[in-house]
Design a protein around this nucleic acid. Structure first.
Lengths: 380, 380
DNA sequence: ATTTTCCCCGAAACCGGTTTCGGCAAGGGC
DNA sequence: GCCCTTGCCGAAACCGGTTTCGGGGAAAAT
């Protein structure tokens, strides 16, 4: 192993350490007849440096193009000015479509403070823990953004135990020491249910996402609250869980439509799953927006291209990233976690997938049964 | 500004630098009765340390859970063990769907060597330059992955001038000092043309992507080569450029189909644009896979769900990321750029969007004209 | 038996910053 | 006129590693 390193070093034949030509703090100091300690304090705004000197130093540093090495500062300050993000990339990963926007938001806010973002990926929760531990051990980041919060989240346990700052995108069970930013998915689901009830729907189904995540919990609560506000009974038969993919969403829709009294309206916790209803409807010859109403959540671009375009509660993912990054920096700088808790609403994008029911549940049931018999007959 | 920092420090009230409880190299040394210099050399496999000592040290370090601080090493070695990636997120960004896979590949390979990835985003080429300069100045990365290479690429100029290692995802005009990994888009386009010709098509159109990128250049060449191999003439009227979005792809298709002798087959440089042909075909009442044939490129997931599913040349983006990261590390360790140039083929996924032409160009032309007149008539 | 060689390792410098400590000079109070 | 602040900066320690240099001791050569 050493051989490798040695020969490599030999080949590059560069001066043993940093880039040549780089201007160091000593250079700035020398050019001003000061010591590097003074320059450092001046640049960092210490109060025991004369205002005039401070200005002189800053001007000179600017002119000479001096930029302190982040890792050289880090050795003393213990801060690398970087935040960590571990993206869990499963087989069917639902934040894939938002990743670019999210990163854009995070890096924009981070860059504004001259921070950077260290990204890692993982394929499973266990892998996430391992990777997180490595980043922590090597201190590659001063704090972490934890997306897709689980109800009981091992990442939180790890970081809390080590006393490392973090911020959640989402909420979690044990809130002690937790800062977070989250979207009010519960409000969206509540509004969706109320909206559909207002259109005349009486049987409104709810298809939830992966139940290990916290967002599923709060969205479910919101849906229930919506029913309550609308004066509708909560029927467990009308609720499905763990619809992650479009296929899942389709399967859930089919099951619900085969009920004796099927729902005429559907609230989906995710757009991706909601698109499954479109396929189920197509198979059954039902028209979305009249025979069936559906409201989704996320603001997935594909939803806008569906026929009819999907009514949804859209999340500003870039903004979420920005807030998370900014808040994490505050947290690392010492702000109390209790003061860093922010919730933002999702925004309704009313499109064509919901409206007054064209059929009663009874009529819908006969229609479905007729079609199903037909399909079965064909298949046999 | 200082006030802020000061009060923040006071609030956290942590020991002034690194985490308490962290085991440092001195601790390992003390526990073995050695000096930290010796421990460092032992861990880094220097040949002037006795084999037995080396083993003893490594075992102790392992047992004590010692992990050197990356930035503490960096101050002397000049290496932070991190690579940089700047993702340009424009309005219609075509690598968005691949970003997750790409990051997965990059971080997998990087993590295998205990490297990390620093990600930044930008909104324009100018922004990219600024961001790149900042990362370079602060030495947040030892080298960079440059995706979406342009024919003349300012990022290359900047890094070359500063002597900072980089690797291209794609190729560029001036290859001096450049290492790269790329997909043989030219071969894919050539094969696509030959394949369509083999199915009996005589007029094969080509709809290219953004012409500022190098990939457009090579894919165009491949298409021309394919025509030549098939013994077909190259007709400039059958070629379109800069189709970035699905809308662009649709517009290009419509223009081409209005020709006196429209093409019966289309080679698209990107799947995203190719999906535009589906919309154009739908409007004109033409069936894809018989009336019109189309072959795309990228392996976009949406293509599989189109009706009929899109035949395409699929790119293994995760693999590309892995190779790029691994090669960049080699480059940084001193390998010559000339030895780090790798090309991989795209893989044909034959689906239902291509086949023998059901109509001649002449018949197709009358069909289109009839339909167009109809639409115009309706619109007026 | 002495000298030379070589193998190991300790001591100390070094990397590029930050932070502590102390001292000098000017200003203020008595 | 003297002492005590106060403001400002230099000197030096420090952070956690890496790398250079040199020397002690055992083995090999003479």
């Amino acid at each position: 192993m050493m051989q490798k390193t040695h020969s490599a070093n030999a080949r590059t034949a560069q001066p043993r350490s940093a880039r040549p030509g780089r201007v160091r703090i000593g250079d700035v100091a020398a050019s001003l007849g000061l010591t590097k300690g003074t320059v450092s304090r001046a640049l960092n705004g210490y109060p025991d440096i004369a205002e005039s000197t401070q200005l002189r130093v800053k001007r000179a540093a600017e002119a000479m193009g001096y930029r302190p090495l982040a890792h050289a500062q880090a050795i003393r300050t213990g801060r690398v000015r970087a935040m960590g993000l571990i993206v869990e990339i499963g087989e069917y990963d639902s934040h894939r479509p938002f990743l670019a926007e999210f990163l854009a938001g995070v890096t924009r806010a981070a860059g504004a403070e001259s921070w950077t973002l260290t990204v890692a990926t993982s394929v499973s929760p266990e892998d996430t823990q391992t990777t997180l531990a490595r980043l922590v051990d090597e201190h590659k980041a001063d704090g972490f953004i934890l997306p897709r919060t689980r109800w009981s989240d091992p990442r939180v346990d790890l970081l809390r135990a080590q006393g490392i700052p973090f911020i959640l995108y989402g909420r979690t069970a044990d809130t002690t020491g937790c800062a977070w930013f989250d979207i009010l998915g519960e409000d969206a689901m509540r509004d969706a249910a109320v909206r559909l009830a207002g259109q005349g729907h009486r049987r409104i189904a709810f298809v939830n996402g992966g139940s290990e995540y916290n967002f599923a919990r709060v969205r479910h609560e919101g849906y229930l609250k919506g029913l309550e506000e609308a004066g509708l009974p909560a029927d467990p038969a009308l609720m499905a869980t763990d619809a992650v993919t479009t296929e899942d969403g389709k399967a859930a829709a089919e099951r619900l439509l085969r009920l004796d009294l099927p729902p005429t309206a559907f609230v989906y916790a995710t757009d991706k799953a909601a698109l499954g209803l479109y396929r189920a409807a197509q198979d059954l010859g039902l028209r979305i927006g009249s025979d069936l109403s559906v409201i989704g959540y996320d603001g997935l671009p594909e939803g806008a291209f569906a026929q009819p375009p999907l009514t949804t509660y859209s999340v500003d993912t870039a903004h979420a990233g920005e807030r998370l990054a900014a808040m994490l920096i505050e947290r690392i700088r010492g702000a109390a976690p209790e003061d860093l808790r922010e919730l933002a609403p999702a925004r309704l994008i009313a499109r064509g997938s919901d409206g007054p029911p064209a059929l009663s549940s009874e009529k819908l049931a006969t229609l479905v049964r007729a079609k199903e018999g037909h399909i079965q007959g064909r298949n046999q």
